[in-house]
Structures are given as C-alpha cells and as structure tokens.
Design a protein around this nucleic acid. Structure first.
Length: 443
RNA sequence: CGGGGUGUAGCGCAGUCUGGUAGCGCGCCUGCUUUGGGAGCAGGAUGCCGGAGGUUCGAAUCCUCUCACCCCGACCA
C-alpha cells in the first residue's frame, strides 16, 4: 500500500490533450500523467502509470505461477551468436535493433527470447525426468517497428511476459499449451477484460495450436468476427485444476470450438456460422500463444534423453502477453468522456479522497483521519489535499485518473454529517454518514 | 519504406503568404478575494521561433541542407 497525498505526488495531469495522441487511451495516459514520450514509440513511465503497469504485471505473474510456470529474468541485450544458431539473425530483418559493443561484437536488443531460453534449458536439462518445464519472464523488449503508434499500444519498446514450455513429446506440449490457454483466460478476466481466443496463423509448423487473445474495444485495431454465444458465455474456467488433464481438455475444446477470427483469417464464404449469429467488433490483441515443436531445440541442439536412451529435441511452445500494451488496452475498454474508468484490480489506487476545502478545519480534520484510517486498514488511497485548488479541478482530475471509488468531503455535506461516495463507473453518488464511510469502504 | 503534415513559453495555438526584432488561451509565480463540477481581480516570470548554412541593412517569416515528431498505407506482443 502506498497512499499518497496529491499535494506531494508527481502526477502531472493535463487539461488539454497533447496533439500527438490520436487514440483515447494514449490521450488519457498523457493527460493523467501516467507516461511521457521520449522518442518515437518509447515512453517514460511516471508514478501513476508505473503503478498500473506493476499491478498488471503482478496479476500476470500470479497466474503464471498458479499454472506452474517459473519466473526467470533474461537480459534485454543478447548476443548475435545465439541468433545465428537458430538462423534468425539474418531472417529477422530490420525490426531487430542491432548494436555493436566496443569490441565490435554484434549484439541486439531482444525482440523475443526463444534463443536465450533454449540456451538456458539446453545447458541444464538433459533428461526427460526434468520435464516438463515452463519458464517465463517479464522483460522489456524492443522491436523497431516501421511505424510505432497508438502510444503504449504499439510502442517500439514494450514490456512483455513471455513464457516458454519444454516437453518431451508433442502430447506433453499440447498439455502445456492448454494450461497457458486457461491461465490467459484467467489473467485477462482478473483485469476486468473479456478476452476471446481466436485461431491464429500458425506459421511454418502448422497445426491447430496458435491463438491470439483479443479483447473487444470500440477503438480496437482490427476487425474481428465471433460467434455471438461468446458474449454471454462464462469463459473464466473457474475451478479447473491445472493437474486435471481431462478438465483442461474439455475447457479447451469448449472454447476453441466456438468460432472467432480476426479479419485476416475470417472468410465469410467458408465461415460455418449463419451471418446472423456473428458479432462483428473491433479488437485488440493482448496475448498470443503458439506451439512450434522443435524449431529452436533442433537448430540449437537442445536435446533431451528419453527413457529408451534416445536424444530428441525438446518440444516447445511460447506464450506472450503484452503487459505494457494491456495498460492502453484496459483504458480503451474502460473510459468515458471524463477520463479513465479502471477495473478495481488494476486501478492505481483503491479510493480517491477529495478534500473540497482545505481551509475548513472540520473538513480537513475529517479527511486527515479518514485518510489515516483507510490506509491503516490496507486501502490504497489517493488523497487530494491540495490547498487553493478549486473543487471543480479536483473533481475533474479525480475523474480523469479514474479510481473506482471517490469519497467527496466538503463543508456542506459535513455540516449534515455526510460525505458523498461516488462510483466512478456508474457515476452513482450516495450520501454516507460520516460514521459509516470507513466500514463501507473497508467492508 | 512510400504518401501527407507539423516543429514558435510546460500544454493548446496565432504570427510565416506580404521580412522590421514575438503574441493569445490555459498552466506557472506573488497578493487579495474566493471554495460542491477545470474561480475573479491585480501584478509577474518563462522563448537560441527544432538545428546548420545562406540571402538581406534586418529573418520565426525567403532559399538550401538537416534533425525530430505526428497522420495514412504495408508490418506487428
């Protein structure tokens, strides 16, 4: 918990929208003082933005851990050597940022980490008894996009969770894939997002094991087509154990059996659904998982000795979540005319407390004690205690920042023994007795 | 990378066509008055006019080069 007084905080909000921001999440992130651009597609994260970024990262981390993946931290700077082994150094093209060190050795800022993780695993994992393994990291990546845009939604530098599974057999790899599939649905759900897994192009390996996780938002980048049953279906997969292969299977079949495709893949002619049953919407890709077999393990000699003594390349899959992109995506999915509307679990603070008149002794002493009490009870509070700032500005800033709950305390209400509790999402305001507000927020 | 556009105060912009030494709104600072939805009055600070060269008595303004950023397209976690 890091309660904060707005009078001391570094949350530089803007009244006007910087002109470089085109889409609403970018505009709101700049206006709410979450980020500052320092170059094309490159951003500094200011305290408010960093808080959200960490909350999202923590949810991702918890769900990866629950699914049995283990966190490591791989470097941002990688050596060209590994990429030459896999053959991707030449194949990757200009998206990869290449740099040279003082000895003129070729290095790169990692756009992804298959090579590094394969190298790690091949040095330590030799026996089928050591499998399965799933290693993930949350690390900054760099892809030198031709045209970065949409703020953190498509920056060149971005924070990404990437997991890599290693199995002896293809069947094992399929289980690993389904675990991540479930973990992803749970992860996005916790962020207040309804993600729809969509069949994606599988690349050179082929097969049916690649999904993009798309969330629906009016301002999404691509058009998507989905069975309308997605809209009502409970996709959370609660209660399913990662150790229950049959349940995992059932869940995976249930979801992957329902039609959903992005415009690249969707073909009205071959779509099995009646057009009336298709929902057309805009979507943002927030995750992508795929199975690619032995592409890297074979090339890089990551072999496992099986029970019968044979040396066989590990079966691999990789699983990405765009952590920094999610910050923008969540805002795209949750905002209104006044600003951001955070889902509770990723909101930078739990409660905003507005002191409408810091010159009023009764009002200020009430706010100070509520601030203390809420903080003591584990609530993360952003307290607007700024002197000389008019109520209107405080309302506007708090709405812009978008915390789920606002407690508005002013002399008028306090004279009647009440404060106002506002739900940011619904806009609903309610007068609460001063004696009951703490319990109301903590309970 | 192709096409288009913009760089002037922290943010949003005018001034550029027609050269004469920089302005508006918001924000910021001081004081007073204000305090329930982005206050009022008074005073004040802030600019290598993206950078370099050139033309000219004189350049934000004209010319050349350059850098950065934004938008559209193709590409993508």
């Amino acid at each position: 918990m890091f309660p904060m007084r707005l009078s001391r905080a570094f949350i530089p909000t803007l009244k006007e929208t910087p002109k470089e921001a085109e889409i609403v999440s970018h505009q709101l992130m700049l206006r709410a003082g979450m980020i500052q651009q320092t170059g094309a597609g490159i951003y500094a994260w200011l305290p408010l933005g960093l808080k959200v970024l960490r909350k999202i990262g923590d949810i991702v981390r918890e769900e990866q851990d629950r699914a049995g993946a283990q966190e490591i931290l791989m470097p941002t700077i990688q050596s060209a050597e590994l990429w030459r082994e896999s053959g991707r150094y030449d194949a990757y093209g200009k998206e990869m940022l290449r740099i040279k060190d003082r000895h003129d050795r070729e290095m790169l800022y990692g756009p992804t980490a298959e090579e590094v993780v394969t190298h790690i695993v091949r040095t330590h994992i030799r026996s089928y008894k050591d499998l399965p393994k799933n290693l993930y990291n949350i690390q900054w990546k760099f892809r030198d996009e031709i045209r970065p845009r949409f703020g953190v939604m498509r920056g060149r530098e971005f924070l990404m969770k990437d997991a890599y599974s290693f199995d002896l057999t293809e069947d094992g790899a399929r289980v690993a894939y389904k675990k991540m599939f479930l973990a992803y649905m749970r992860t996005f759900r916790r962020m207040g997002l309804k993600a729809i897994p969509m069949r994606a192009a599988t690349g050179p390996i082929g097969g049916d094991l690649s999904h993009e996780f798309i969330i629906l938002a009016q301002t999404g980048e691509s058009e998507v087509f989905a069975d309308r049953r997605w809209m009502e279906m409970d996709t959370a997969g609660e209660g399913i154990s990662y150790d229950d292969a049959a349940a995992l299977d059932g869940y995976f079949e249930k979801l992957s059996g329902l039609y959903a495709a992005t415009d690249e893949i969707h073909d009205p002619a071959s779509c099995p659904l009646d057009p009336a049953d298709i929902v057309t919407a805009r979507g943002i890709e927030v995750g992508h998982i795929f199975y690619f077999g032995t592409k890297y393990s074979a090339a890089m000699n990551a072999t496992i000795q099986s029970a019968d003594g044979a040396l066989i390349p590990a079966q691999m899959g990789s699983y990405g979540i765009g952590v920094s992109r999610l910050v923008g995506a969540i805002i795209e999915a949750g905002h209104d005319e006044s600003g951001i509307v955070w889902p509770e679990d990723v909101a930078p603070y739990d409660v905003g407390l507005l002191n409408l008149n810091t010159d009023d002794t009764a009002c200020t002493s009430f706010c100070e004690s509520l601030y203390r009490d809420l903080s003591a009870r584990g609530k993360d509070v952003l307290y607007d205690d700024r002197a000389g700032v008019r109520p209107g500005s405080k309302f506007a800033d708090m709405d812009l920042i978008g915390l789920p709950w606002q407690v508005v305390a002013g002399p008028k209400g306090l004279a009647r023994g009440v404060v106002e509790l506002k739900n940011r999402r619904t806009g609903e305001k309610q007068d609460i007795d001063v004696g009951g507000i703490l319990a109301r927020l903590v309970g």
